[in-house]
Amino acid sequence: MNVANPEGYTTPDGRRIGGVLMEMKNITLRFGGVNAITNISFDIRDGEIRAIIGPNGAGKSSMLNVISGFYVPQEGEVWFKGYKRGPMKPYQVARLGIARTFQNIALFDGMSVLDNIMTGRLTMMKSGLLGQAIWWGGAQREETENREKVEKIIDFLEIQNIRKTPVGRLPYGLKKRVELARALAAEPKLLLLDEPMAGMNVEEKEDMSRFILDVNDEFGTTIALIEHDMGVVMDLSDRVVVMDYGKKIGDGTPDEVRNNQDVIDAYLGVSHD
């Protein structure tokens, strides 16, 4: 298995990974005088599960925010689907086919689960203000078509019974799942997951891991995730980027990263003598 092959590679479990989908080139992000990210480059291949790990404050979430357009890096280039991406607002990035979830759940508490997931399809719904106001023909047909797609995702994530419940009333684990559903409803090319398993018990983690693998397998969605649970990361991901203090200290398959001396030092500490 040659993961450096530009044409793609085949994983040990037989999944075919394609060429480069997204490439970060020499990204540097500063807040005032603080360098959150220093000169980091890595790529994400079509169809792979790519993990970004690192100790607290390493700049992982900042990296995700750069990809999703919240932060504009001072230096460096973001390439997506073979094109260089100019400075974009987050809603424009969403229309490119990049969806994400948040570390602390960012759902719309006042709306039902169904409405929350339907918001994921907003970018595909084209009917105008007047058409919607009259609710006849196009607008209603569009609503029904998108509802069908959303119902498939509801089935997929096994949340049929809470369809009409207001999101504010749900427990934490289910909220995480609804947030994943909302991101999936957009049928993204690239799905960004910011700590999808934070604060979950073992059973919920297993469920979530299964969903992530299924999403990758059935929809062919490329996934980039940040996670602290090393067991999960090493099991799920095809390749791992390791960050520490805003710098990249390792990049490769889980096995390579595990045996990388810099990574071991960053996680276990190193004596300064």
């Binding site: 999703s68 919240f70 607002k89 987050p90 809603y91 969403a94 229309r95 969806a99 994400r100 948040f102 960012a106 759902l107 719309f108 508490d109 006042g110 709306m111 409405d115 339907m118 918001t119 994921g120 907003l122 970018t123 719904m125 009917s127 203000l129 919607q132 609710w135 607008a139 569009e142 609503e143 909302r182 991101a183 957009a186």
Partner: peptide, 22 residues
Amino acid sequence: GTVGRKWMAIRDMDIAAEIIGV
């Protein structure tokens, strides 16, 4: 419909609304 969901998304959490394309 869609318009109403956009409005409510902005009301409930404008950052998340932007990230889904509003």
